[in-house]
Write a protein that binds this DNA or RNA. Structure first.
Lengths: 383, 383
DNA sequence: TTGAAAGCGCTAACAG
DNA sequence: CTGTTAGCGCTTTCAA
């Protein structure tokens, strides 16, 4: 029943001594009870809790932090966008952080912000955090040298979600770095369908995530001995996908495109369609993310789903471990599965030669062969 | 050049006394410099700053908070979703909070979480915040009585974004509550087009925002003396929109639907199309939010755009004012404009009688008649 | 303009 | 099992 209870303006907030007095114990005992330390008799514990309840006692976190040297909070650096990927990651992080008993402090990096990730981390360090999560970092000064750039030095454990920028810290963890693997899966799906090669609508190359995807795509084509057409760079927006689509529509060699995210894929499809090139009959398109509407656009989008929650959870578990066991070894990584969701935006290329193998297959997992593929297909099969 | 600088593990962090010693002044003077207090000679200030720089000094926030009683941080309660609306609001909030010099603490409410908003607020109060922002509240126990529910009592100023749940606090501010007005605009647009009435695909009614939209829709129909068909309730997802679409497709009286968000609108359109009902020729659909891909789906979606950034900015300015001037009057509210973005998912109803007035008009603003309408139309006109 | 002293409310050693 | 004694690193008084 403590729900939402709080002091009303005037009365000063009760302190642990007040509780101690009321319960007839020492202040330290109150502290013990609230920290779930052992060696407190059930009877005393009950009395303390009761007194605390009566007074509406709430521990003062500033005092706690000051005395213990631990803030019990984790800072996260995110991009200042409502983009599905970063937003999902942030939500996943919040969930896990709260579960672990830490508080979450958030700072955004805005694109174009000169201070970039470094500034955000700095501000977090100023605020005082026990660990830092850098989500989907982007590398603001691609020019290098504009800011006297040494790797970022941080004195708390760091978890980088996505791909790692240069960071120096007592412990650097990464999670969810499998973007290249996912790009590989997407590209290979298209190749399997019989396409000669696959074009790529890339994300902004300042984003490590975008570079990873591009790299995975390129490597796959190379591994198959296919031509690597120049990639078109977008900015994650559907608008940029649309613009790229107008370009690509003019090149009749284009029969398959792997877009670095679903928004761009949707813009791309629209442009293609408007230009008279049907999807998937003339051109196949694969997206990336599996945004909520992906199954409902026309045609339903074949895409790669990132396991945001799993990534956040696994990464944070390791971060918290590093925070609470300084000096200890990092917990082992486990690669979350990547799922290719095959819907209706991909098909074999317009007849020319029938592909020998690779008819459309069902959803499949990579990285964890035992993981059962998720339901795919049209809208009706999604929750 | 302080970018990213931080202590390396072993050396204890320098304190203000260390800086004082090095600068040859008292510790209090260091404090003065860092708080930008007056009465410090330029010379002394310089020496202090220099010493601080040399030592890599960083103020200890816990100590500051403990001594001053202010945490200089604002807590925000959001939904644990990557939904465009809530995510956008959160990003907007972060931006402004940082600008005002406060730190941001985030706690999510998960749907189905028994503690709900109350629990989230409680956790924020535990952590210690100077003010609280509740974003898009939902009212978890619609049943009432399940938790002995008195209005939430909070002892710091509160800003509610969206629609206000019952809250008791020294100062309760609201911003962005114009959802009913926006719903009105959307509904009226459809009526202007000549539709006899408008159906509504509502959001989950536990959400205040969803209720507001429904109310705006209902009121508009009533005001025009039109029949108010039963609303269909979805859960914001495209999947739920799709399900609703299958239902509505069977009712040939349905010629216009106002969906409470874009995701549902997209699912709805897909179901309608699959059922052979063309959009907008047979059925017009209006969404809500103007998500990034709205202009690129087929057909491009007519929707209502919420001014997230403006709402966050305005609300926070008022919250910070309330925090820093306890007892003072709240700053006045200004209603941000609501924009109806007309694209291709709406049209006059299938011929029957030609509507007297209301041919498709350009984008228009409500609430701020002087505000120039934003560019609308197809993809090509979007950035 | 500057400094000295006294806490803020809690946790961390140590006793008992 | 429980209590005592010190601080944690600042901001506040109040003097100088």
């Amino acid at each position: 029943m403590t729900r939402g209870t709080a002091r009303s303006g005037s009365t000063p907030a009760p302190r642990s001594v007040d509780v101690a007095r009321l319960a007839g114990v020492s202040q330290k005992t109150v502290s013990r009870v609230f920290n779930d330390e052992q060696y407190v008799s059930a009877e005393v514990r009950r009395r303390v809790l009761e007194a605390a309840e009566e007074l509406g006692y709430r521990r003062n976190n500033a005092a706690r932090a000051l005395a213990s040297g631990r803030t019990r909070s984790i800072g996260v650096v995110t991009l200042g966008t409502a983009l599905y990927g970063p937003a999902s990651l942030l939500m996943g992080v919040e969930r896990v952080v709260r579960d672990t008993g830490y508080a979450l402090r958030v700072v955004n990096t805005m694109e174009g912000d000169p201070a970039g990730v470094a500034g955000a981390v700095d501000s977090l360090l100023d605020q005082g955090v026990d660990g830092i999560v850098i989500s989907e970092p982007i590398d603001e000064d691609g020019t290098e040298g504009a800011g006297g750039d040494t790797p970022l030095r941080i004195d708390v454990p760091v978890l980088v979600l996505g791909a790692p920028p240069p960071v120096t810290a007592p412990m650097v963890l990464t999670a969810g770095g499998g973007a290249d693997l996912m790009a590989h899966t997407a590209t290979e799906h298209l190749l399997d369908l019989g396409h000669r090669t696959v074009h790529h609508l890339a994300g902004p190359q300042r984003w490590y995530a975008a570079r990873d995807r591009l790299e995975g795509w390129r490597a796959t084509l190379t591994a198959h001995g296919r031509a690597v057409p120049p990639a078109v760079e977008g900015d994650w927006s559907a608008a940029s996908g649309y613009r790229a689509g107008r370009e690509l529509a003019e090149d009749s060699d284009v029969t398959a495109v792997f877009a670095a995210n679903d928004d761009m894929a949707i813009g791309l499809i629209r442009a293609l369609t408007e230009a008279g090139r049907r999807v998937p009959e003339d051109v196949s398109v694969v997206g990336f993310d599996d945004i909520p509407v992906a199954a409902y656009v026309s045609p339903p989008l074949t895409t790669v789903r990132q396991p945001f929650d799993a990534v956040a959870q696994e990464g944070l578990k390791r971060l918290v471990h590093a925070i609470e066991n300084p000096g200890a070894d990092a917990l082992p990584t486990s690669n979350p599965p990547v799922d290719l969701i095959i819907r209706a935006s991909t098909a074999p290329p317009p007849s020319r030669t029938t592909p020998a193998h690779g008819r459309r297959t069902a959803s499949r997992s990579l990285g964890d062969p035992d993981h059962p593929p998720l339901p795919n297909g049209g809208p009706s099969s999604r929750h």
